[in-house]
């Protein structure tokens, strides 16, 4: 299935979870937040939330700013 993670479109195995998608970027779980199609997925739901075709996943963290 086609999923876009942080602006990069790619093919991912069907049924991949948010947790697995995050792990493609980082091993961190704290200090990181995820939105799928502009809706926040809380950390407790990462393992149980499956991604679907054409989902847009944003994985954010804190950086220097302000």
């Amino acid at each position: 299935m086609k999923v876009t993670i942080n602006g990069n479109a790619g093919e991912l195995p069907d049924g991949m979870t948010v947790a697995e998608a995050v792990r493609t970027l980082t091993a961190l779980t704290s200090g990181v937040a995820v939105a799928v199609n502009d809706v926040v997925v809380s950390r407790g739901s990462w393992e149980s939330t499956a991604l679907a075709e054409n989902d847009r996943v944003e994985v954010l963290t804190a950086v220097q700013g302000g």
């Binding site: 970027l25 994985v59 963290t61 804190a62 950086v63």
Partner: peptide, 17 residues
């Protein structure tokens, strides 16, 4: 102290946090 939120970049080492 303020921080900004940005897309996670796997290449970046060390965190302001």
């Amino acid at each position: 102290t303020t921080v900004a939120m940005r897309r996670l970049d796997p290449a970046v080492q060390g965190s302001v946090l």
